[in-house]
């Protein structure tokens, strides 16, 4: 809590919603890569895309306590939808994002009826199964998806018919960052809405929710669909900026990686997925440069170290440090 006295009940909520300086600094810092590390813009745009994917997972895992090991399914559906649209002659990126988000959201909505009924270990197995199911379906439908060779022939038109995608990734990074920021604003609003409060209630004590009259399954279906839409948008951006889609887009590895990133960064904090994605992908880039074969060793070590030393992730650790130093975040 802040040191100022709380004037009225609603101020307690206002204090949470207020933009903090650390947030402003964070977003200002995202403008630095083109200036400081222009040769890493391709990586930076992949980080922004992955951060968006991790943000979508945070909405279900971090805020609602719905664990998933198959979240890449929606990322992949978004990627293939955008990729196929482009291949079939519609390469306009913004509408592509929306259509891809819709397709992923549709799958999310349908599967949410199953998801809402289960928790914990059963949910891990179900989401894992869904992911594997979809991956194999995409693999066998190679006439559509290109199968193991990946989807070729994607061409993304310039954004607003003006900003073409360049080799250095200026456009790709600006585009990914802008979409990340816009979706982040929506997610931030959602978290601080009555619905966001209900989600935290589900995470804290799902069994208590029916006893206060809450339609918990309906809440879970809503957030799961929203998370699927966002994951789909992230997938679509990857397809549009790299102009290729491989089976890896909806693979188990991607589902697992995004959970790792979120836990690294800190769950249920909005910025956890963003920070986690950045740390993970920069670490992967560096470690694979050092040793292309065994870089997962270092990722494993990093994960164990963070979970042991910082149970609430990197951001949880930073928040603790700030409190110890008596600094207001």
């Amino acid at each position: 809590m802040t040191s100022e006295t709380i004037a009225g009940p609603v101020q307690q909520f206002q204090a949470q919603i207020r933009w903090r300086w650390s947030e402003v600094l964070f977003w200002l810092a995202t403008l630095l890569p083109p200036v400081l590390v222009p040769s890493y813009l391709v990586l930076a745009s992949q980080i922004a895309i992955t951060a968006l994917f991790a943000l979508s997972l945070d909405l279900i895992l971090g805020f609602s306590g719905i664990i998933s090991l198959g979240h890449a399914a929606y990322f992949g559906v978004g990627a293939y939808t955008a990729g196929l649209l482009s291949k079939w002659g519609w390469g306009e990126p913004v509408s592509g994002l929306l259509i891809a988000g819709f397709a992923a959201g549709l799958l999310g909505y349908v599967t949410s009826f199953v998801i809402a009924r289960f928790r914990h270990l059963a949910l891990i197995m179900i989401t894992l199964g869904l992911g594997l199911l979809l991956q194999e379906a995409a693999n066998s439908a190679s006439w559509l998806t290109g199968g193991f060779d990946g989807l070729q022939g994607i061409h993304t038109w310039p954004i607003f018919q003006k900003f073409g995608f360049d080799l250095y990734g200026y456009t790709a990074y600006s585009y990914s960052l802008a979409v990340l920021f816009l979706v982040f604003l929506v997610a931030r609003r959602l978290i601080h809405s009555p619905f966001g409060l209900a989600l935290r209630g589900i995470r804290e004590n799902g069994q208590r929710m029916p006893a206060i009259g809450a339609p918990m399954h309906a809440h879970i279906r809503t957030i799961y669909t929203i998370a699927a839409i966002i994951a789909g948008i992230a997938g679509a951006m990857l397809a549009q900026t790299t102009e290729t889609v491989s089976l890896e887009a909806l693979g188990f590895q991607r589902s697992a990686d995004v959970v790792v990133m979120l836990i690294l960064g800190g769950t249920g904090r909005l910025y956890g997925g963003l920070v986690g994605a950045a740390v993970y992908m920069v670490a992967r880039d560096q470690f694979s440069g050092l040793n292309p074969q065994y870089w997962y060793f270092w990722i494993g070590l990093l994960l164990i170290a963070v979970v042991m030393l910082l149970p609430n992730g990197i951001l949880g650790g930073l928040a603790l440090l700030a409190r110890r130093l008596g600094v207001r975040s």
Binding site: P9, Q12, R189, L190, P194, F195, L197, G213
Partner: peptide
């Protein structure tokens, strides 16, 4: 405590599914 009871009130008034308006 306030968040918990506010949540219950919001559920009763059927505004707890609203995600596009802030709680303030």
């Amino acid at each position: 405590a306030l968040e918990s009871v506010t949540l219950a009130v919001c559920e009763r008034r059927r505004v707890a599914a609203t995600w596009w308006r802030q709680i303030t």
